[in-house]
Simulated assay, not measured.
Amino acid sequence: MAQHVSSTGDDRTANNAVRHQYRVLSDAEKAQMQRIKDMGAALITELHVIGGTDPTLDRFASRDLSLANTHIEDAVMRAVRHITQ
Rank of each mutant, 00 (worst) to 15 (best):
L25W: 02
S26Q: 08
T70W: 05
N69A: 11
H48C: 12
H71M: 14
I44C: 06
E29A: 08
L57N: 11
S26Y: 07
M33V: 05
V76N: 11
I50C: 01
A42S: 10
L47H: 04
R19N: 15
K30T: 02
S62C: 03
D74E: 09
R35N: 06
R63L: 04
N69G: 08
I44M: 13
H71G: 06
G52E: 09
K30N: 04
D38L: 15
D54E: 13
H20V: 05
T70Q: 12
V24E: 13
D54C: 11
A28K: 05
P55Q: 06
S26V: 08
L65I: 01
E46R: 14
T45D: 15
T70R: 11
S66C: 08
L65H: 04
M77W: 10
D74Y: 05
R23I: 11
T53K: 00
A28F: 06
Q34N: 02
V24S: 09
A75T: 09
E73W: 13
Q32D: 05
R59K: 07
T53A: 02
G52S: 11
R35M: 05
R19M: 14
A68C: 12
I44S: 12
L47F: 10
N69M: 09
A41Y: 11
L67V: 10
M39I: 00
L43R: 08
L25V: 00
P55D: 06
A68T: 09
K30L: 05
V49A: 00
V49S: 00
V49I: 05
A31M: 00
Q21C: 14
R19L: 15
G40M: 01
L67Q: 13
H48E: 11
R23W: 10
A41K: 15
A28S: 08
D54N: 15
K37G: 03
L43S: 03
A31Q: 04
H48G: 09
R63E: 04
S62P: 03
Y22P: 03
Q34D: 04
E46W: 12
Q32W: 03
L47W: 01
D64K: 09
H20D: 10
L67D: 13
I72Y: 07
Y22I: 08
D58M: 07
D58F: 06
L25T: 00
A75E: 06
R19F: 14
M33E: 02
S66E: 11
R63C: 01
T53C: 01
I50F: 01
M77Q: 14
D58P: 07
S62K: 02
E46T: 10
A42Q: 10
H48T: 10
R23V: 11
E29P: 02
A31V: 00
D27L: 12
R23G: 11
V76T: 14
K37T: 08
V24L: 10
V24W: 02
G40E: 03
S66P: 02
N69C: 15
R63P: 01
E73V: 14
H48F: 12
V49Y: 00
G40W: 01
N69K: 12
G51P: 09
A75P: 03
A75M: 11
E73S: 15
D27H: 12
M39A: 06
Q32S: 07
T45L: 13
G40N: 00
A31S: 04
K30Q: 11
R19Y: 12
K30A: 04
A42N: 08
L43V: 02
